[in-house]
Amino acid sequence: MQQKSSSFSIKNWSDDDKPREKLVHKGRSVLSNAELIAILIGSGTKNETAVALSKRILASTNNSLNELGTVSIKQLMKFKGIGEAKAVSIAAALEIGRRRQNEKVKEKAQISSSKAVFELLQPLVADLPHEEFWIVYLNNSNKVIHTAQLSKGGITGTLVDVRLVMKQALEIGAVSLILAHNHPSGTLKASEADKKITNKLQKASEAMDIRVLDHVIITQNKYYSFADNNLI
């Protein structure tokens, strides 16, 4: 049994099969997602290599890193061989990736389409288990002046303070707004409540000579635009 256990140690693999050595000598881009996760967790179990364990974890999320980013520490710890420290390492690495993507998007601070809104806010809200309502404030060149989380609610909905939106828009000199919120359920459909708050914010904005350009509903991989569907 001891011989079987040691055979599953990464130390005993050939250099070409060791994820760390492979990254050092061949570059990070040649590694599979499972090999990268194997580097994070460092070891598997006596019956399963770190790479095999990582493949099993990925398979549980349809081999999607985005889906893996939504998995909780407790859920990760249900896999044999994943303790709290390893689960935290995986979660931290995925969070770094999410923040890196968000920094890249912020460099493109001009909004020219609903897709650009999705790319701006998807890293912030797509993986959340609860609903959040955000406002993107723009200048007259459609460049982002400021993005702000207006409210945070339960999975069934969120509350929006119209007066706070208008106050902030006037303070920073915004000439237009884009509304956005996530649907944790993954449903890409505007509810009656979504339509009502859009209409309410439109009326309030018009009184201040500010335009509401769009309202974008965001899920993990897709989005729904009020403007694209002629609801604004």
Rank of each mutant, 00 (worst) to 15 (best):
M1E: 15
Q2W: 06
Q3I: 15
S6Y: 12
S7N: 12
F8M: 10
N12P: 04
W13A: 13
P19H: 04
V24H: 02
V24L: 14
K26N: 13
V30F: 02
L31I: 04
S32Q: 11
I37F: 00
A38I: 07
I39F: 00
L40N: 03
I41S: 02
T45P: 01
K46V: 05
N47T: 09
T49N: 05
V51D: 05
A52W: 00
S54C: 08
S54F: 04
R56Q: 14
I57V: 12
L58K: 01
L58M: 09
A59T: 12
N63L: 06
N66Y: 02
L68I: 11
V71Q: 01
I73H: 09
Q75Y: 00
L76R: 01
G81K: 12
I82R: 01
G83W: 08
G83F: 08
E84A: 10
K86E: 11
A87M: 08
S89N: 13
A91C: 07
A91K: 10
R100Q: 09
K104C: 07
K104L: 14
K108F: 03
S112C: 10
S113Y: 03
S113C: 04
S113G: 02
K115N: 09
E119D: 15
E119K: 10
L121K: 03
V125K: 05
D127N: 13
D127M: 14
E132L: 08
F133P: 09
N140H: 08
H146L: 14
A148N: 14
S151K: 07
K152L: 14
G154S: 11
G157C: 05
T158L: 07
T158M: 07
L159K: 06
L164R: 12
L164C: 03
V165W: 00
A169R: 05
A169Y: 04
L177N: 07
I178F: 03
I178A: 06
I178L: 11
A180S: 15
N182T: 05
P184F: 06
T187K: 13
K189W: 01
E192M: 12
E192P: 01
D194W: 00
I197W: 01
T198F: 01
L201N: 02
L201T: 04
Q202V: 12
K203P: 00
A204G: 02
A207H: 05
D209H: 10
I210M: 05
R211E: 15
V212Q: 05
D214K: 03
D214S: 05
I218S: 02
T219K: 04
Q220D: 13
Q220M: 15
N221Y: 08
S225T: 05
A227D: 11
N230R: 10
N230L: 14
L231M: 15
I232M: 06
